[in-house]
Design a protein around this nucleic acid. Structure first.
Lengths: 259, 259
DNA sequence: TTGCGCGTTTGATCCTGATCAAGAGCCGCG
DNA sequence: CGCGGCTCTTGATCAGGATCAAACGCGCAA
């Protein structure tokens, strides 16, 4: 189950064939490094070494890394999906994000050298380890890696800001619509059908992520279904009217700007 | 008004003397680079060149950079303070953060090479420009800079996650208590009295940031005052019982985890 | 100093979404 | 095929905080 690096480095964009939950490594850990300007031949050799990494498998509900654990490596989702959960001071837990195949996890731990959240598999999942020392080494020597690393961190920051705006302001309906579209978009990025998605997380997980109640999420599901915006049975989801969803996500804000 | 870099590089930690809104450059842009392991002598020379930068002054309410503007540089707050505002698709605006003297702004723009938010001065403020090309150059050559850059980005990500947990879950009371403590802590980091703070942002700004209504924030102010947790007149704030505030911030969560 | 305007406080009311609780699917497992 | 334990749905009720609106106070400008 050693991820095949070489085969994909020359052809970084994976096709959306087969099971959405399993990708080849080109889509996974290295994708981000290879994308923008391409990688020099010599860099490829370096990367192959640098990525020679452990591959971990986690059962559904299992923990890939735990909160408070010292930070040694980033994790790249190879198969399946994870939820990222943060426990606050009072003991309550909150889902801060989801990671699908090809996503990296652990960025928030670099500064403190300690994980602030834990990653829990939503299904049988696999992840690659990217030892941070190796990444730093690579960043020192390969401009593309350095730049790409910054870019990924930056994107994470912006994603957070956008989510902040959404959750802080939008109505439950708008939040949920935006969430569905977001998942759909992330699937599309991976080359899969944006209209037909399998949600690997539970209702309470979605609710926690969106700052809502599980019951509310459930109600929204049925409402959207009744309105013909989606077709859904269990965790299978079909977006029949993405534009209408987008309209909902845009409108229906809760708190008005009062400047 | 050219910031004095050299004098502070050897003595990176500034004292909390004088006005909280104005810092020397050692506390400002370079602080982050100098802190952890110290900087080599030769590195200092390099940094001095790399930081030779423009200094911008913005009047209260003025815009330092605007949303959508191409990203050329990070901004380091030198004097005063800013609010970071994001306008979403529907035209509504949301405060996504505040930047005080010594803070850097613009991390979220690296990936897209375009600012996703705008920075508005909350008072007469000054900022230094850190041209990104220069930063990248420095990151390429100086390990400390590279590492520190990553660390700052990572910290921003974690801060975002923590805020996500707070806003998504906590009651208005808990959010506001956490906010006051947060501002206080950031002032303390800068060497100022944690107990006596001047809030440079308006109630609507705080409300927007916390996902609340301005009226609610105002009510919380008076409630906390009545409970003896704070003493406040206008924007002058005194935290008389930080522990009690911390307790409020911890408890009183809204949504329950339903795993 | 007076006057205007904005930021702030405070009140009254309403509504969204949380909470509590019961029932219905769904799935794996024996 | 039937049982048990999930997760999900749905209903009834309640409350936290948004909204609307009015009065107040402070700062700024003339």
């Amino acid at each position: 189950m050693q991820p095949d690096v070489s085969c994909q480095l020359e052809q970084p964009r994976a096709q959306g064939v087969g099971d959405a939950r399993k990708v080849r490594c080109g889509l996974c850990c290295m994708r981000e490094f290879c994308e923008p300007d391409g990688v020099e031949r010599s860099d490829i050799e370096f990367l192959k070494a640098f990525v020679r990494k452990q591959h971990l498998t986690v059962a559904k509900g299992g923990e890939l890394y735990r909160q408070g654990e010292p930070f040694h490596a980033l994790f790249a989702v190879h198969t399946g999906s994870f939820k990222l959960v943060m426990r606050s001071a009072d003991g309550r837990e909150r889902v801060t994000g989801f990671a699908f195949a090809g996503d990296l996890m652990g960025f928030g731990a670099i500064a403190a050298a300690q994980h602030a959240d834990r990653a829990i598999a939503l299904e049988k999942s696999g992840a690659c380890l990217l030892p941070w020392a190796r990444v730093e080494e690579a960043a020192a020597q390969i401009p593309v890696v350095r730049r790409q690393m910054m870019r990924m961190l930056s994107r994470e920051i912006r994603r957070g800001d956008e989510h902040h705006v959404l959750v802080g302001q939008a109505s439950a309906e708008a939040r949920f619509a935006a969430f569905l579209l977001g998942v759909s978009a992330r699937m599309a990025e991976r080359g899969f059908d944006a209209a037909r998605v399998r949600l690997s997380m539970s209702r309470p997980d979605m609710a926690s992520f969106l700052g809502l109640n599980a019951a509310t999420v459930s109600r929204l599901f049925t409402r959207f279904r009744e309105q013909g915006l989606i077709r859904a049975r269990g965790r299978r989801l079909e977006l029949t009217q993405p534009e209408a969803l987008a309209a909902l996500a845009r409108q229906k804000n809760l708190v008005r700007a009062q400047n």
